[in-house]
Every structure is written in C-alpha cells, then in structure tokens.
Amino acid sequence: MQSIDQLIEGSLKGEKLSTSRLISLVERGNKHAPYVLEKIFPHSGEAYYIGVTGPPGAGKSTAVDRLIARLCKNNFSVGVIAVDPSSPFTGGALLGDRVRMHVKHDKMDVFIRSMGSDRVMGGLSRTTKEASRILDASGKQVIIVETVGVGQSELDIAEATDTVIVILTPESGDSIQIMKAGLMEIADIFVVNKADRPGAKDISLSIQGMLDRSLRKRDWTPPIFLTTASLNKGIDELYEGIWSHSRYLQQDSMLEKRRRTQFKLELRNRIESEFSHILWQDIIEEKNIDNLVQEIWARKIDPQNAARRIMGELIEELPGWLQRGG
C-alpha cells in the first residue's frame, strides 16, 4: 500500500489510481482526509466547474457524455462526478451514469467517478466539493458535477459550481413542478432535452414565461437550449452557451465574487457541522436530553423552552468549559 504522501504526489502528477484512492479517502471520511485536503487545496482553483441537474430520466448523463466529447475535442481535460440516489433502506446504490458515457481513453483525458448520494460523510455537497477539488488539483481543467434534481442536491450543486445547467424534457411536467423543485432559481442555463418529442416548444415557452415573470433582478438571463442529446443535436449551441456564461462571469470579477460567496457559505456550513459535532460528541450529555424529554412528556415544559434552557446553561458553562481546555 502506498503512503498518503505518495498518493498525493501521484495524484498531483495526474496518476489516476492515486487520484481515485484519494477520493475514496475523503468519501469515507478517513482520518487522513483533512491532511489530504490540506495538501491538495493549494493546487486547486484552476478548473472551471459545471453543474448539471434535472429530474430523473431527463437525459443528463447522455448530455454530459456529449459535453465531454465536445470538451475533449477542444483539448480540455475533464473530471466528472456523477451522483445517483442511494437506497434509503439499505444505503446501497445502483450507479448507472457510466452506461451512457463513452470515453476513448487513448484519445480523451477524462476521469469519471460515480457516487451514491448517501455514500458521503457530511453531506453530498461536501463530498462532491472535496472530490472535485482533488480532480481539479490533479490537473483536470473542467469539472462536471451531475446530480439528480430531487430535493436538496440541486441546491448543493449551485453552491459548488460556476455554471449550473438544468436539464428538463417535454415530459418534465407543468411549470409548477419545475418551480417547486427549486430549479428555476439556480439555473444559469436551461436545456430542454429530447426536443424531438412533442411538447418541447411548450415547455421552453413556459420556462421563458416564468423567467419573464420572475421578480428577481437578473443581469444574466438564463438561455434555453433545445437539444436531442442522443442524436448529438444542439450540443454545440449548449457548449457555446456554457462559455458565454463563463465569459459573462469574467466581467467585474463576478466569478471571483461567486466563488467567494460559495467559500463563505461552505465555511459557515463547516463551522456549523464542526460545532454540532462537538456539541453532540463532547458537550451535551445524552442523559440530560433524556431527562428533558421526561419533563416534556409530563407536560412540564415545552420543547422550545427546553431547548432554550439547555442553551442558556451551555452559554453559562462555556467559558469554564473552554478554560478546561475543551
């Protein structure tokens, strides 16, 4: 087995196996993960990050496959993180994105990694971020993060990438569904895939309508591209659309601002999660909680005031706790 330092060194040189093993370490929350990230981070930041999301069956992986081919044709090296949902019951996942991805490894510099959505210690957004930084540091110039847009993951993707592409199809249902899914807010680019099917025009009109009615002030109006990814139709336009968003972000240091905002958010999230980790591991004792539950059950106190009481005690005790060295 190679040492962690050898893996880091190998990965920074672009060795696939080392990169792959480093990703596994952060995925599993291995004890060496912080060290790996510390060493890797200074080498990241060069790549451009693209997020791809949308409902199941929208053709995301096919679209990503065509984008990979397009990027490689222009001599970009590409890293892909493809996230599929895990079973809530067993934790297992069937990760099928590679079925649709065809990489000619002798001609294309591509690294694809599949992840189950609950594989991750500390949330999807954290692991995809860390894994994409490892790919970034290993020399990939474009990173694509693909997730199924159901629930939280599409919001995560907006916090981790520079350009977010939301892929829908004529079957994606009425506009309300799209609104509900929170996809409208995060999209920098809309794609209506399977555009050769009836209803493609309707859905692009309804997206347009929603954008027009949206109260949010926009400097960037998300374009809507019609594609049939399986036939490689509309991919060139989409490709150009990504770079035109990228050029837009270059103005007035907008990319920098976006990434700074993302770092700030990430930092906050990390503080929160570190804090809650400490809170539950080291500070609050389970039996105190159980005692409070007993009081709540007896209707002596309500949950909200119980929480306040415990926080009050905590704040009083905190200085002493910190002095004792935590």
């Binding site: 053709g59 096919t62 069937l94 994105d97 079925v99 649709r100 399986s230 036939l231 490689n232």
Partner: peptide
Amino acid sequence: EYGLWAFPLL
C-alpha cells in the same frame, strides 16, 4: 445517422 438511444432503465 440516427444516433444511439440510451437504455431507459437507469
């Protein structure tokens, strides 16, 4: 000419 169609199971 027709392109390939992805298996719709996954």
